[in-house]
């Protein structure tokens, strides 16, 4: 009997030493405790989900690009069915020049500016810096000269052109149209304008009830 207990203990110790403890790091795909061949179920369905591989298509991916000319059924802040608002979606005035001001479909208010700050901090600040002066964290890692928003050229640039720069990129900057929906791009434009305005602010711009917070009067 004693031998049997010893063997059992040996098997238990062997199992623990072979399998290890919880939380160890491993690179092989996790073992399935209830494998499909023994317990057929619906755990791994042959359906295609986002960003999965599919040998069916020539490029090997399940995500399909929309055919050229396709328009989302509902899009934009005002739910426009078609992107027929050139100002809102391309930053262009009816005569084809860069539009100034903001599209009528958007209300430029604090909520839009807050949204702009939020998006700016995520997507723009790494290179352009939190103040828009081109001193983002990437500069220390070798990012080339990033434009400062406080240059005369950019201060005078039409809102529509800034919008277009975000949408399509410019020079070394890649497009961000895939990351920012049109309304978000306008929110960022509004926030950029706020940053530019703040740079030239004087004491007289500060509302009276905030004057006490200034260190220099």
């Amino acid at each position: 009997m004693r031998t049997i207990y010893l063997i059992t203990a040996f098997v238990a110790v062997l199992t623990v030493s072979l399998l290890g403890l919880r939380g160890r790091r491993f690179v092989q795909p996790p073992v399935d405790v209830f494998p499909e061949w023994a317990f057929p179920g619906m755990k791994y369905q042959p359906k295609l989900t986002q960003q999965t591989a599919s040998p069916f298509f020539a490029d090997g991916r399940s995500d399909r690009a929309p055919p050229p000319g396709t328009v989302p059924a509902s899009y934009g802040p005002a739910g426009q069915a078609l992107r027929n608002d050139g100002f809102l979606y391309a930053g262009k005035a009816p005569d084809g020049s860069w539009a100034r001001g903001f599209p009528r479909a958007l209300k430029v208010d604090m909520a839009l500016l807050e949204r702009g700050r939020d998006r700016f901090t995520i997507y723009c600040a790494p290179c352009h810096g939190a103040l828009g002066d081109g001193n983002g964290v990437m500069r220390a890692y070798g990012m080339g000269a990033t434009a400062s928003y406080h240059d005369e050229r950019l201060r005078k640039m039409a809102e529509g052109e800034i919008f277009n720069t975000i949408t399509s990129g410019k020079g070394q900057m890649n497009p961000y149209g895939d990351k920012l929906a049109p309304a978000d791009r306008w929110a960022v434009v509004a926030y950029v304008r706020a940053l530019q305005r703040a740079r030239t602010g004087v004491v007289g711009d500060v509302p009276d009830h905030h004057k006490g917070e200034l260190e220099v009067q």
């Binding site: 238990a12 199992t15 399998l19 919880r22 939380g23 160890r24 790091r25 491993f26 690179v27 795909p29 996790p30 073992v31 399935d32 405790v33």
Partner: peptide, 19 residues
């Protein structure tokens, strides 16, 4: 004890760090 410890995702999945 063995099943409880080893046959759950706490053992089979936690720590998965594929190359």
């Amino acid at each position: 004890a063995g099943v409880t410890y080893y046959m759950t995702p706490k053992y089979t999945r936690v720590g998965y760090a594929p190359i």
